[in-house]
Amino acid sequence: MFRGLLSRKPVTKLALTPPDPQPGRAGIALVLIVRNEARHIGEWAAFHLQAGVAHVVVYDNGCTDGTIGVLRDVLGDRLTVMPWNQKLRDAVTGRELHNQVLAYAHAIRNFGGRFRWMACIDADEFLVPKQAADLPAALVPLEGCASISLPWHNFGRNGHVAPPDGGVLRNYTRRAADPMSGARGVTNFKVIVDPAHVTAVKVHSYEVDGRAVTWNDRGARFALKDRAGRAFYSADHIQLNHYYTRSEQELAAKIARGSNQSVEAARHAARVRRNVANIEAEEVEDRCALDFLARAGAETGGHR
């Protein structure tokens, strides 16, 4: 009975031995798992190049729409592509091994030694420098932090039924008013880490040096279990923008694709629609991504 229950729970946490830091390691690398993101991936890649990202490691989860070609066009030799189209299970228990967690652990272990910082994010997430000229400069005050947890700032449909011309950043400027409001804000995090200290990986959290601790972007240390509290919140140096839905048509397509785990379709659809309603219940304007591009003298339209 116990074993049967256990077999239905995916493996979502992996332990690893940290990579050895290479001499002269520097910069920030992004890790991304993608499946058919061609419409917006060029804008995502161009933004993060402008923000000072040194390299992007992409895990190709069966793209068929030209996503990888767009990334090659934008990123050139700053791109590494790994084939990653799989669903794996433990042979004894039948537990699914979370494909995203597998990719993150592989990237940290195999590429992390080259870089001072690494962040595993999604194609609908943008790391926005709030004051500094780029991400490396924004991270200078946080040199002593092995793991920096950035709360989602969730953007909804912004009234768009169909995908608008001009890209994501220009057309989606309203987000959930309170990023730390629990269910209403759909609170979660992505993490910028020093890969040489990572000892365990989940999608939204890491252990460093065997400890379940993290820092906010003001450099204050917290236990991982305490970061959902209001005292943890900060977005002084870097803000994580999460474009959860984009247009209604894209939201419907997101629901139709299903979860990245083996989740029953109706339950997945209900959860996503509930999250959208919570995000859009109370919104504020947020133009920090456009403000960064204006400071950098970059264009604000989408890459086509």
Rank of each mutant, 00 (worst) to 15 (best):
P179W: 03
D165R: 11
N154A: 06
V58K: 10
H98D: 15
V284K: 14
A270P: 02
R116Y: 03
H303T: 15
A269E: 10
A183T: 08
G4C: 14
H48K: 07
W44D: 03
T173R: 12
A176Y: 00
I238P: 00
A231I: 10
C63W: 10
D236V: 11
F189H: 08
L71K: 04
A137Y: 05
D165F: 05
D194E: 04
A46K: 11
L251N: 06
N188H: 11
V198K: 00
S7P: 05
S7E: 11
A15Q: 14
S259Y: 00
V272H: 08
R109G: 10
F292L: 10
R218M: 10
L97R: 10
I41H: 00
L169M: 07
R95F: 11
R211P: 09
R109F: 11
Y233L: 13
A296S: 04
Y59D: 02
H55P: 04
K225D: 14
Y244N: 09
G42C: 02
R170L: 12
H242C: 02
K13T: 15
G156Y: 05
P151D: 06
N188T: 14
H303K: 11
G113Y: 09
T17C: 02
G297P: 09
P83Y: 07
H106A: 01
G94Y: 11
R271I: 00
R218H: 13
T173Y: 03
D178K: 08
L102M: 09
R78D: 04
R230K: 15
A162T: 15
C63Q: 06
A29R: 07
V272P: 05
Y172P: 12
V193Q: 01
V128K: 00
A220Y: 14
H48C: 08
P83M: 05
Y59L: 03
D73S: 15
V284C: 13
L142E: 08
D65T: 03
P136H: 04
N241F: 12
A176P: 02
G76T: 03
S247F: 06
R227E: 03
M82W: 13
Q261C: 09
E207S: 14
G297M: 13
L49P: 01
L75G: 07
R78N: 12
A252Y: 06
A177L: 14
F115E: 01
V284W: 11
P83K: 03
K254N: 05
G42L: 00
G42A: 03
I33V: 12
Y59C: 06
I279C: 05
I28K: 06
A183P: 03
F111D: 09
V101N: 00
D165A: 14
D20R: 15
G159V: 01
A277V: 04
H48Q: 06
H40L: 11
N158A: 12
I28C: 04
V92W: 14
G302Q: 02
A132H: 01
S7H: 10
Q22D: 15
R271A: 12
D20F: 13
A15I: 12
I255T: 05
V272A: 01
A38E: 09
G219Y: 06
A289F: 12
V284H: 13
A183H: 02
A281K: 07
